[in-house]
Amino acid sequence: MNIVYNGEMDSRAFKDILGATIPRLAAEDPDVVYLDADLMSCIGTAKWAPTCDRAINCGVAEANMIGVACGMSAVGFKPIVHTFGPFASRRCYDQIFLSGGYAKNSVTVIGTDPGVCAAFNGGTHMPFEDVALYRAIPNATVVDITDANMLLDVLTQFKDMQGVKYLRVSRKNAAKVYADGSKFEIGKGIVLREGTDAAIFACGIMVHEAMQAASSLEKEGISAAVIDMFTIKPLDEALVKAYAGKVKAVVTAENHNRIGGLYSAVCETLAGAGVRVGHVAVEDEYGEVGPQDYLQKRFRLTAEHIAEEVRSALK
């Protein structure tokens, strides 16, 4: 894994990657079918869709869309489904749980604009619980995307994987972390930065914040490791335990409710291990409207909050 992080934004927005990758996968594999719930224009697939009979706009009917996708899986297709995060999780939960997971149909669900990334769409569109919901589906795979190259590779891998796979990703640009062409192992965390005092396990947009936090902590003489836990389920328990065994404190950072997400997963793994586990996450609140940078401050999802949490966990 070649890590190229320097804090700079990737010129490619996530929606550009989605808009290019979905048509490519459909062109390469005749079993790929793409379904959307009237949000094709939001990820750049709307112009291409009318040219492909396997790109299906289901209208604003998410429960049906998931069911149709699962039915298509049963007759040999590899469905990729997209809508905004809350509608890809809460809105169709029984469908993805039963028609998907329980019935052993395979479907890739892309939930865009997770957490504060929903910004100006506000509280109704702001899922702080989608990871919790998908984690509770037996054998589901749950990924919170860090950068454009990760999205490209993980989506390509998800296409051929069995089961229910949930991919949450912003539509905007994010800091570039991984070199072009990087390959990712689902279920394995990636150590971005070594450290001996604390270990920060982060996912999604919080990886960039965690790297910034580790830099500022270094200036104070605190050595913090940063681990990209992009796969929240199955969690890389071995890596979590390994770091918990060699640092004084563990801190998680996620754009999600502290209930049911990465913090929960890490705590479930470390229960009884005797290590202090801090967290930076939404404190069991609903979302609200505003610019993303405002919301990150409002919900305490910034590098400063991570640094503060590390300091207090080390006390």
Binding site: V33, D53, R54, I56, A63, N64, M65, I66, G67, V68, A69, C70, G71, M72, S73, A74, V75, G76, F77, D94, Q95, L98, S99, Y102, A103, K104
Partner: peptide, 30 residues
């Protein structure tokens, strides 16, 4: 469908079999 030979789809939560059947029919057609 995972337990019984000949059962083409898992159902039980009412309403869900409708979309599943429609998806199967559309898939077969494609």
């Amino acid at each position: 469908r995972l337990k019984t030979k000949g059962i083409d789809m898992t159902t039980g939560s009412l309403g869900q079999g409708t979309s599943l059947a429609v998806g199967m029919a559309l898939g077969d057609m494609l």
